[in-house]
């Protein structure tokens, strides 16, 4: 009796599972109503808001959004497992060739701008950092440096003032899988790295996380720490962190990151945010196309500002919409 009672539902369950399994593909995003978005944790809040709003008028759609990081996102995207990949940097050549090998065709859509905020704990006395300052504590040449002052020799050599304070230095920042990491290298370090014939990377010996919130937690717990995250996360963190003003050259103008300085390009460390859409899937799945249509409207405006990013100017917005309609 007892066993039969247990076995019957088990069998029924197995049958149902097998029946559904036959019609479903492995990715789980093959059906029209299923949309899977993965990629940058920086862009994730925008996509989450668009999905949330789109669902209100399309209750049949099932959109799942995750944020493992831009690099991991592209890996999934080029394996054909996701419909849309959030990215906080443009796709790399090797990622693009991955996609090509697997026959994945995509369109790149710029959706907003994010400044990268350079931060420390709330009690840090420094106000302004220059690119050479950051180079001297984050480049591969700075490996092993655990005190700001230890970087002074290098700092002076790359055009800095050479008077960094004698205080312990702990760095927490996004890891390699993150678009924020790549953008930081590209904007802040790359020129100096090339000039000094270094690999295009950072020092590896710092704490890294794919979760911007964990980074902020770590930075805020130590007054002489150093790190960077997207402007949106830094602004959300409020007074728990100190956000530096930035100048490109030592002694140049120090610009604090604000929505205005980022939008008008006067703040030097800003980057574009993208979504990549699998165009073949968009052609197969009308709801996916509809979702991206909606993204081009609500996503570029309300979702971007609600997520505390800076919206594109009118010309760039028109360009993005043209790219989508001309896919």
């Amino acid at each position: 009796m007892k066993l039969r009672f247990l076995l019957t539902p088990m069998l029924a369950f197995a049958l149902i599972a097998a029946a559904c399994g036959g019609s479903d593909d492995a990715g789980g995003s093959g059906e029209d109503g299923e949309i899977f978005v993965s990629g940058s944790s920086t862009v994730e809040p925008i996509s989450v808001r668009v999905a949330d709003e789109f669902f209100k008028t399309n209750p049949d759609v099932n959109i799942a959004v995750n944020g493992p990081g831009t690099g991991d996102g592209f890996k999934l995207f080029c394996d054909g497992e996701t419909d849309i990949s959030d990215a906080s940097r443009a796709i790399k050549d090797e990622e693009a060739s991955d996609c090509e090998e697997n026959g994945i065709n995509w369109v790149e859509l710029k959706v907003g701008i994010d400044g990268i905020a350079i931060m420390s704990g709330p009690g840090n006395p420094i106000e302004c950092l220059s690119f050479p300052d950051m180079y001297s504590i984050t480049s591969p040449e700075a490996e092993g440096v655990q005190n700001w002052a230890d970087a002074n020799e290098l700092n002076a050599a790359v055009g800095g003032s050479g008077d960094l304070p004698d205080a312990p230095l702990t760095i927490t920042a996004p890891g390699q899988e993150s678009g924020t990491y790549a953008s930081f290298i590209e904007i802040v370090l790359e020129d100096l790295l090339e000039e000094r014939e270094q690999d295009i990377t950072t020092r590896f010996d710092y704490q890294s996380s794919a979760n911007d919130n964990i980074i902020i937690n770590n930075i805020s717990s130590d007054d002489t720490s150093f790190g960077w995250v997207g402007f949106a996360f830094a602004e959300e963190a409020g007074d728990s962190v100190k956000v530096f003003s930035i100048s490109e050259e030592e002694g140049g103008d120090c610009i604090a990151p604000t929505a205005e300085t980022i939008a008008d390009n006067s703040y030097p460390i800003a980057r574009d945010l993208f979504i990549y859409v699998n165009v073949d899937k968009a052609a197969e799945k009308p709801l996916l196309a509809e979702f991206v249509d909606f993204y081009m409207d609500y996503g570029l405006t309300t979702a971007v500002t609600d997520s505390k990013y800076v919206p594109l100017d009118d010309a760039a917005m028109a360009e993005t919409r043209a790219a989508w309609s001309g896919r």
């Binding site: 990081g69 690099g71 899988e177």
Partner: peptide, 9 residues
């Protein structure tokens, strides 16, 4: 964590 499965290269 935070990733959809473990992809990493």
């Amino acid at each position: 964590a935070g990733s959809d499965e473990v992809v990493g290269s």
